[in-house]
């Protein structure tokens, strides 16, 4: 499969569907599409035809192209930093706005809310969470996860609570474990809190009027080329209050212009209102 055909396919996909993957990282998106061709035993022309004529297939395609890996309390050190250094400073605000952009199946949204509950911040917090993939949004709303697969997060949770000095808090406060069904379900008082909705960061305007105190966008930008990354980070920048923070994945970084507009601490980037003469 030549490079031209694959780029051409992405252009056709953009033309015939609501989805635009043209500015995803070349090598990565090409590989995802090659995998889809292989899994469905199709060639490029068959894929294109199916894309143009079968809407359900397109939704499945988006599910296959996008990456939905996430974890409860992913990178505990980040949560520790947020809990001790960032979240407490939100206490003085009347209401706190949080956005999880690219929330996948919701594990980080719930990790966030559990810590907010520990800090007594839950009641005056508004959380919105978005993802391009309809299917993961449905999963996120349920807040029910495979127990066997997620068992190790009990340990992560305990060690985090220990470090944070909340030894009395246990996992059972937040999750209903069902060994027979092999599930763990986030309890209702947490599950009902976030508003999940489908939203495509790349193609759609940001659907919120409010500004945010914290935007989580973890391991999403890595799938975009540098130009698209810049475009999305600009949107985040505009949507953050001064002093608001953007939380990225462990090995993501801001490049170019916006590198100067945030103060970096690990994977937590604080919007700086410092006057940058060069750019004004």
């Amino acid at each position: 499969m030549g490079d031209i055909t694959f780029k051409k396919y992405l252009e056709e996909l953009k033309k015939h569907t609501p989805y635009n993957f043209c500015d995803y990282s070349d090598n990565s998106i090409q590989r995802r599409i090659e995998k889809i061709l292989k899994d469905h035993d199709m060639d490029m022309n068959q894929l294109l035809l199916k894309t143009k004529t079968d809407d359900d297939f397109v939704e499945k395609l988006v599910d296959d192209i996008t990456v939905n890996t996430t974890e409860l309390f992913r990178n505990p050190e980040t949560w520790e930093y947020l809990y001790t250094k960032v979240f407490p400073s939100l206490r003085k605000k009347k209401s706190i706005n949080i956005w999880h952009a690219g929330c996948s199946t919701g594990q980080e949204v719930y990790s966030n809310l559990i810590l907010f509950n520990e800090l007594g911040l839950l009641d005056h917090t508004n959380v919105v969470a978005t993802d391009i993939n309809q299917k993961v949004i449905r999963g996120a709303k349920k807040g029910e996860y495979d127990l066997n697969f997620n068992n190790r997060y009990i340990e992560v949770f305990d060690s985090l609570m220990n470090k944070l000095g909340n030894k009395s808090s246990d996992f059972g406060k937040y999750f209903e474990m069902n060994n027979a069904k092999d599930t763990m379900k986030v309890k209702d008082f947490i599950v009902k809190k976030p508003k999940f909705r489908r939203h495509d960061l790349v193609e759609e305007e940001i659907p919120f009027y409010q500004k945010f105190d914290v935007i989580f966008c973890r391991n999403v930008l890595i799938y975009f080329n540098p130009e698209l990354q810049l475009k999305i980070v600009r949107k985040f920048y505009d949507k953050l209050y001064d002093g608001g923070v953007l939380v990225l994945g462990t090995h993501e970084a801001l490049h170019g212009f916006f590198k100067t507009k945030f103060i970096k601490h690990g994977m937590v980037y604080t919007k700086s209102n410092t006057f940058h003469f060069k750019y004004k």
Binding site: S25, D26, N27, S28, R31, R32, V67, T69, N219, I222, Y223, G249, T250, H251, E252
Partner: peptide
Amino acid sequence: APSNYHLFIEFDSTVSLSTEE
């Protein structure tokens, strides 16, 4: 290659990371 990420080489000799399966 960092822990828990796949490491890919792009055509322009930059690194792309991914958390895919």
